[in-house]
Amino acid sequence: MRDFFVLRVIAKLLIPFMLLFALYVEFHGDFGPGGGFQAGVMVAAAIIFYALIFGLPAARMLVPDALVESLIALGVLLYAGVGVAGMLLGGNFLDYFVLMSDPVAGQHRGIFLVELGVLITVSSVMLKIFYVFAGRGRDAIE
């Protein structure tokens, strides 16, 4: 793929917008269609696109394996952590009303953090799955 000039230029142009759109989908998900699951898949798709055009080693340099693996766990921990934070502040598990003084604002913040956790886990799991599959093919060639 590395020899296709047009593909490389178009990919370089498109990938920032793909990531930007993923962030829009994530943070505008309260008001329009969107949310953590969709945005996570889009982030992963953008990086997989990069890996397809520029090669797997380049993508692995950009987003290292160790980072992806720790992000997988971080997302779930963030989600569960929001629940525990609600407990510590005197509510039930995953009770967002206590996160801020105003219940509605607390709900908003809780949803925001939870969606962020979902985004992190989903995108890193998808990316890791792709790395593992693609890396396996590389080992087979060598």
């Binding site: 949310g35 699951f37 996570g40 989903v122 799991v125 799955i129 593992v132 599959f133 396996r136």
Partner: peptide, 19 residues
Amino acid sequence: LTAIVVGVATLALGLALVV
């Protein structure tokens, strides 16, 4: 919505088993 994402994760697990 959640089922689709869980579906692709389990699909990846199935493909890993196939490999």
